[in-house]
């Protein structure tokens, strides 16, 4: 009984769980890693995982990309069947999130280059040690 519900839970929800686990991997990287570049990589994983989460929301079993086929619905608009097309909204939202992710990544890398230039290293403990001296 338990096993069955567990299996059905895994089958029906595994996409969300996978995204959430990836989010946690990214977050661990951002908080725990000593190398600042690895933190940035963790940040990238975090943001990509959120994109995966949203895209999972928009999926419909058996549906196609959200582009109305020419010809079929041109004359009669009522003929468009919503189950044939996946939800376009999460795609739109995630296009924004991708852009934000790229932008943050670029700024983080720029600051990282500056840190390397000032401190000569991007290992956090080495930087902190050099500050104490």
């Amino acid at each position: 009984m338990y096993m069955e519900s567990l299996i059905s839970f895994i089958v029906t929800e595994y996409n969300y769980s996978a995204a959430l686990i990836l989010i946690m991997i990214g977050m661990y990287g951002m908080i725990a890693k000593n190398n600042l570049l690895k933190k940035v990589i963790g940040m990238s994983i975090f943001q990509s995982a959120i994109i995966l989460f949203y895209i999972s929301i928009g999926y419909k079993g058996g549906a196609s990309i959200p582009i109305i086929k020419h010809g079929s619905g041109m004359a009669d608009h009522a003929a468009i069947d919503p189950t044939l097309y996946v939800n376009p909204l999460p795609h739109v939202l995630m296009l924004t999130a991708i852009v934000v992710g790229v932008a943050t990544l670029g700024v983080a890398l720029a600051i990282l280059q500056k840190i390397y230039r000032v401190h000569g290293t991007i290992e956090e403990d080495e930087i902190l040690e050099s500050l104490k001296e």
Partner: peptide, 15 residues
């Protein structure tokens, strides 16, 4: 996530 609608469900609120 067990509270979330099934993955790929066309009838979920989001879809």
């Amino acid at each position: 996530t067990q509270d979330l609608p099934d993955w790929g469900d066309p009838a979920s609120p989001a879809n």
